[in-house]
Amino acid sequence: MTEAGDPLLLGQRVVAILETGLRTATYKLATLMALIEHCVENLPTDPADALQVPIPALAHRVLEIYWHQVRPFDGHELRQSTQPKARILAATTSLRDAAGVGRGGFSVDTARLRAPEAYQRAIDDVALCLAQQPLHRLQKLPGASTSDAFLYDDSFLHDHVSRSTLRARGDAIVLNPGVAHGLARLAGLLKPALEIMWVDDVRRMNKFLAAEVPDVAGHLFGRERTALTVVRGPFKEAFGPHCFYCQTHLPANNPIDHVLPWSLVGIDGLANLVLACSRCNGDKSGSLPAVAIVDRVLERDQGVLEDVAASLQWPTQHPRVVAAARGIYLGQPAGVPTWSGYRRSERLDVSFPPWWVQP
């Protein structure tokens, strides 16, 4: 059986490449993480299908990954490359400066609205860097003269590939048949493994990060995620000061919860956010919510969400949430437990999928 036909074999192959390959930057890890999320949100109907992945779309996801990581940590700028010029980090920082982010927490999508020309420059810079560096090296073992293209054809990519060559190839790579489904199925396993490798690489590149330095993983991967507190007031006005899950009345400083877990898809759009009480928020944690919960989230009044989005300059990302939900739930085997409320769970029933799961 090929790797594409067996998700576990595919996952083992991916991890083996990363563990044995040379990483002079965290770019390979970011590229793979972006590929996984793209597969989840663009899952082909047929598990055996190939999937075209636009490189600019990957660039946007890579920007999202580094967006909060470029902030100072413990008074230091974290190095994520051994090279003198870290192109992707520089592009990310330039966009943050142009959009006036400072130490704030709004998203890449909001930066795109505030500084569209700077955003496009950043996408162009990151996309070219991805094509010239991690995308053509991701499938190459140390000492090998050529890649083993088990994920996608990289024969047109090299260190000096031009923008015109990329345009001639549709500014895209094409994942081999079955790879998209395999990566989507393995998202919950591969992403934590990538995070562990990432933290190890950052510690290696930053000598001040002694073992006792607290929560560098939290800084890198959003344990202190986007500053969502700005959403709390408008959501209470729009939907009432009640927990979305249990309807209890909320105090002034209640949590904001990501319905589709941040650990699977890092979507900060309003369509993926709800008001929650501390009890439900802590109990749910990174669990997959029951389908009925996602249905209720997606059935909220879109006009109201768009009004909140306009007032905050914060995108709703409703289509992205729908696509991610479809990819996540279609990739789950029947009967897996899902979180249905405080100390409650129910088995996933995929025999009668809801409307948003339909291809």
Rank of each mutant, 00 (worst) to 15 (best):
T2W: 15
D6A: 14
L9F: 14
V15S: 14
T20L: 14
T20F: 04
T20W: 08
L22N: 14
R23Q: 15
K28W: 08
A34Y: 00
A34S: 07
C39V: 01
E41Q: 02
E41H: 01
N42P: 01
N42A: 02
L43V: 00
L43E: 00
D46Y: 06
P47T: 02
A50M: 01
L51Y: 04
L51D: 08
L51M: 11
P54Y: 03
I55D: 04
A59E: 01
V62K: 04
L63Q: 04
E64S: 10
E64D: 13
I65R: 00
Y66G: 05
V70R: 06
R71C: 00
F73M: 06
D74M: 09
G75T: 06
E77G: 01
T82Q: 12
P84D: 06
R87S: 10
I88K: 01
A90V: 04
A91W: 04
A91H: 05
L95W: 05
A98L: 07
G105I: 07
F106T: 04
F106I: 04
F106C: 01
D109L: 15
E117W: 07
Q120P: 03
A122P: 10
C129M: 06
C129D: 12
Q132G: 03
Q133M: 03
L135G: 02
H136L: 09
R137Q: 09
L138F: 02
K140T: 10
L141A: 13
L151A: 02
D153E: 13
D153M: 06
S155H: 02
S155I: 00
F156C: 03
L157K: 00
S162K: 05
S164M: 05
T165P: 02
L166P: 00
A172H: 12
I173D: 06
P177M: 03
A180D: 03
L186F: 09
A187S: 12
L190P: 02
I196L: 13
M197V: 02
M205E: 06
K207C: 03
K207P: 05
L209R: 00
A210E: 13
E224L: 10
A227C: 05
A227P: 07
T229F: 06
V230L: 07
V231I: 14
K236Y: 00
E237H: 05
P241D: 11
H242Y: 11
H242V: 13
T248W: 06
T248Q: 15
L250G: 10
I256R: 10
D257W: 07
D257Y: 09
H258R: 12
L260W: 12
L260V: 15
P261H: 14
L264M: 15
V265K: 11
D268G: 05
D268Y: 08
A271H: 02
L273H: 07
C277N: 04
S278D: 15
C280R: 09
G282N: 09
S287N: 10
S287G: 02
S287T: 01
V291A: 13
V291T: 15
V294F: 05
D295I: 06
L298F: 08
L298P: 08
R300C: 12
D301L: 02
D301K: 04
V308K: 10
P315K: 07
H318A: 11
V321C: 12
A325P: 09
P333K: 04
R344L: 11
L348W: 10
D349T: 03
F352W: 03
F352R: 15
P353Q: 10
Q358A: 15
